[in-house]
Design a binder for these strands. Structure first.
Lengths: 139, 139
DNA sequence: CTGAATCCCCTCTGATACTG
DNA sequence: CAGTATCAGAGGGGATTCAG
């Protein structure tokens, strides 16, 4: 998962705001990781400390073991999570955030705060938008 | 696009870190919006001020008019973008960020900064991970 | 307990063509 | 110029099954 996105950065040159400059396609890669259905949830749970596979599975309600495996692999690949295998009879694997992974929780928390603060307004906007459309006769 | 995610918030109770509390499923909705392939790019370009449909299309390299329409609709629905139609012969439509939309650029910029600062480390981690796997004989 | 492998559905996304 | 409609391909993601 999380494919290459091997595109040019030409459009960076067309943007002239500070944050625009800082964005472009590269940031898209990070946002894909952060924006996917489970990664953030997993990272959040791992801030509590190392967790076993099944613990995470139980914590993140609704995730399938397939997706959990895939997400953890992706996170591990990006160096955000460290995987430790204990060679014992009933397999035992622990996952924990790397320093890089921990550093990500800061900006993400900022986004989380924004989300919490503005969720109501967003939902009101959605209701308003949806009502307007259904009333205007769209099937 | 951007579906309901009508799930319970039970798991919130199982988390005990501050940022963990603030997250959970709700934040997932925002992250889905932020994390999708084009929304952020569009928002970034709109920080420069109101833009016409075709301007955005030209700026965001590679986006299809279909996706642009869909994304703008989604952003409008969430109250992040305002759509203004000028009733003239060659249709003229402008899009601009709402105050809510502008406020989102702050936390997003934080994430963008993190991405820029850590992209090298992430790519190194990926190379390392990929090499390790190909060498260990995986087909 | 972990997690790889398969099957399958369904959404996202792009290409193309068509209206106002 | 702005937007919709349709079709087809790619990929995300769940359920289930098998293996170490």
């Amino acid at each position: 998962m999380i494919d290459p996105i091997p595109e040019s950065d030409e459009q960076c040159a067309t943007v002239h705001t500070a944050i625009g400059q800082a964005s472009c396609k590269r940031v898209g890669q990070v946002l894909s990781r952060v924006g996917d259905k489970w990664s953030i949830l997993i990272i959040m749970f791992l801030t509590d400390g190392p967790q076993r596979f099944s613990q995470i599975k139980r914590s993140v309600d609704g995730i399938s073991q397939r997706m959990l495996t895939l997400c953890l692999r992706g996170l591990e690949r990006d160096g955000l999570v460290k995987r430790t295998v204990y060679e014992v009879v009933p397999a035992h694997v622990e996952y924990e955030l790397t320093p890089l992974g921990h550093s990500l929780t800061m900006p993400v928390a900022g986004l989380g705060r924004w989300a919490m603060e503005n969720l109501d307004e967003i939902e009101r906007a959605r209701d308003h938008f949806d009502n307007r459309n259904t009333l205007s006769g769209k099937k």
